[in-house]
Design a protein around this nucleic acid. Structure first.
Length: 504
DNA sequence: TCTGGGGTCCTAAAGCAA
DNA sequence: TCTGTTGCTTTAGGACCC
């Protein structure tokens, strides 16, 4: 274990919600909830204003709406978040080549390996500068944890939230960890937490006192050893920059359970195709096909089949998935279906033995082997073209975003990341002057010299108030192309207005 | 109106081979 | 030849993470 606190963990604050607030001035300082808007959606991220009402990640949307009926409810825009995330990751890689992203909004950085820090003081400096740079480049805030190990750096950033920095001085680890709940340790979730509580263990201190043998007896070998080490603040895991993908999967939860066996088969085939598209997009193939079925009662089962060699042939995956489906009972209905491929290989080695009888493994030519195209099939009602929260452009009124749609109308708020809160107007859904638009950068790209570190779009109090509807003319750079209409938008059918941006 | 989507890792049982 | 041991692979499920 190193002796200097030179491992940095960055965690962006309420990332999805903060991005939406930065791009929509009327939502700043308001409760914002990002997640699936369908009847079975859950919260992906809640802004801190929404958390005051008790809304948090993974909560069913319905419950969130009951707790915070006046919050703004938005569909996630992954393409936009990805592009912001890349900006942040670039800043991290400027500090060190050893950057380990954990998700779009989180990463470890080994400052020592990059020569960016060697002791507590230099680490603090690097952390402070990073936070300032992130704010300048993205307009967003992130929290930083600094410590001598990954586990502690992560706990430190948790402690620093929101918008702060915490450094754990080497030597003080056990004292700080001791009184805390076992739940702060990575790998202790609801099940393990319960298990330990029944054994009379609730704090990290008690975990350490229980002893290694007892923990192994309680939780099994791997988990027991790992947890005991964590309890003693021992964590030797190094920051690893490149991790190989182990599996690729896609799944859909349906708004209403599917009972029709034929329809189930059709959906499985569709998922298999989508999965293969992703597989090929990453230049991979795989040997093991996995079918996942969640039944009406939420019981989940998986069936898998391992082929003799890796494949990226849609027909082969489709057929394997269909065979697997034959072995599961779907009476009562299914709420979720998924198809995955694991046992991955670089797909250069062309399918030596074609798996499907008589199936030419070669019709690779078609799809553009990149991102998934938007799905045309979703029988989306009127809202299809106007997902709530997405950007639009009006021929006369300029840039805005969809606040809600339904009943043949779409409500748009006209504002940009650099304007003040804007006005709301309602149009027929087929208004020819209205077109979907790409998101604008959160920070106006060429910053005027001498403007200091306070970019126009910094989400926070005291937003400058230019005349409502003022248009920042967007520099086209740094914007994700073809904004992610693809990803997932669960369509919502709502009365105008109820798609509910916070009533300003 | 209960409970998403994309992953990772671990365990245990069963089959098979040496 | 029979039996027991060991170890690897496949399969299914569960916990956890963001």
């Amino acid at each position: 274990m190193r002796t200097a606190p030179t491992i940095l963990h960055l965690d962006m604050d309420a990332f999805f919600a903060s991005v939406e607030q930065a791009s929509k001035p009327s939502l700043r300082g308001k409760a914002v909830v990002v997640g699936g808007l369908g009847p079975r959606g859950v919260v992906a991220t809640a802004s801190y204003e929404a958390r005051v009402f008790g809304v948090h990640s993974a909560m069913p949307m319905g419950q969130a709406r009951r707790l915070a009926p006046n919050a703004a409810y938005l569909v996630p825009r992954f393409e936009l978040y990805r592009s912001i995330s890349e900006q942040v990751m670039r800043l991290l890689r400027a500090l060190s080549p050893l950057v380990e992203p954990l998700s779009l909004d989180e990463a470890f950085v080994d400052l020592e390996a990059g020569g960016a820090a060697w002791d507590a003081d230099s680490a603090r400096l690097a952390g402070a500068k990073l936070r300032a740079d992130i704010r300048a480049v993205t307009g967003l805030t992130g929290s930083v944890g600094l410590a001598a190990s990954k586990m502690l750096a992560k706990i430190a950033s948790e402690e620093a939230k929101p918008d702060g920095m915490v450094l754990i001085e080497p030597g003080t680890e056990r004292a700080m960890l001791g009184p805390k709940s076992v739940r702060i340790l990575p790998g202790v979730g609801p099940a393990t937490g319960d298990h330990l509580r029944r054994a009379g263990i609730t704090t990290v201190e008690e975990l350490a006192e229980a002893g290694e043998d007892e923990l192994v007896r309680l939780l099994g070998k791997a988990h027991g050893h790992a947890l005991y080490a964590m309890a003693l603040a021992r964590d030797e895991r190094s920051v690893v920059a490149e991790r190989e993908t182990k599996s690729v999967s896609v799944e859909d939860t349906y708004d209403v359970d599917i009972h029709d066996r034929v329809r189930v088969g059709v959906e499985v085939a569709r998922l298999a195709d989508r999965c293969v598209r992703r597989l090929r997009g990453s230049g991979l193939s795989g040997r093991t096909i996995v079918l996942k079925v969640r039944r009406y009662d939420f019981s989940t089962l998986t069936r898998s089949e391992t082929l003799r060699g890796p494949t990226d042939d849609p027909a082969v995956v489709r057929e394997a998935a269909a065979r697997l489906l034959d072995s599961v009972d779907t009476t009562g209905g299914v709420r979720l279906l998924g198809v995955g491929v694991s046992g991955l290989a670089d797909y250069t080695q062309e399918d030596l033995f074609a798996q499907a009888a008589g199936e030419p493994a070669e019709e690779h030519a078609e799809e553009p082997a990149g991102e998934e195209p938007a799905e045309e099939y979703r029988p989306g009602p009127v809202g299809r073209r106007w997902p709530s929260g997405h950007d639009v452009r009006h021929a006369e009124l300029g840039h805005g975003w969809v606040q809600g749609s339904g009943l043949g109308r779409v409500t748009v708020r006209f504002e940009t990341p650099y304007s003040g809160p804007g006005r709301v107007r309602t149009f027929p859904v087929d208004d020819p002057q209205l077109t979907p638009a790409d998101p604008l950068p959160l920070v106006e790209a060429p910053r005027r010299p001498g403007e200091g570190g306070a970019p126009a779009a910094s989400a926070g109090a005291g937003v400058a108030e230019p005349p409502a509807g003022a248009e920042g003319v967007p520099p086209a750079s740094a914007v994700p192309s073809a904004a992610g209409v693809a990803e997932q938008e669960q369509e919502q059918e709502q009365e105008p207005g109820s798609a509910g941006a916070a009533t300003p």
